[in-house]
């Protein structure tokens, strides 16, 4: 599964994208796996209320299923316009 990071999430984790092998059934479980990896992930994912997630490029929630999903992206609230 491809994981993408944008804005300060990308900066805190230190890379824009990576491929991960995961057995997580939903986004929240994936976040738990990432948090357990290293301190920089734990820091980036410390406050989920301040984060947004897109699954296969659709904005969704942290309880979204990962079944058949190819791409998950984490980022702060958007500031377009």
């Amino acid at each position: 599964m491809n994981i993408l990071y944008f804005a300060w999430v990308r900066e805190r984790i230190g890379l824009p994208r990576e491929k991960v092998e995961t057995t997580a059934r939903n986004v929240a479980e994936l976040v738990d796996e990432l948090r357990a990896r290293e301190e920089r992930y734990a820091v980036a994912f410390s406050d989920l209320a301040g984060l947004r997630v897109a699954v296969d490029q659709q904005l969704t929630d942290f309880d979204a299923s990962l079944e058949g999903v190819r791409e998950v992206a984490f980022f702060p609230p958007m500031t377009g316009g």
Binding site: F6, P76, P77, M78, G80
Partner: peptide, 18 residues
């Protein structure tokens, strides 16, 4: 403003901030 995936960062003399 809040549903299109854009993120702005301002760069000033004091540094850069999202």
């Amino acid at each position: 403003k809040s549903r299109a995936p854009f993120w702005k960062r301002e760069i000033t003399e004091k540094g850069a901030d999202w």
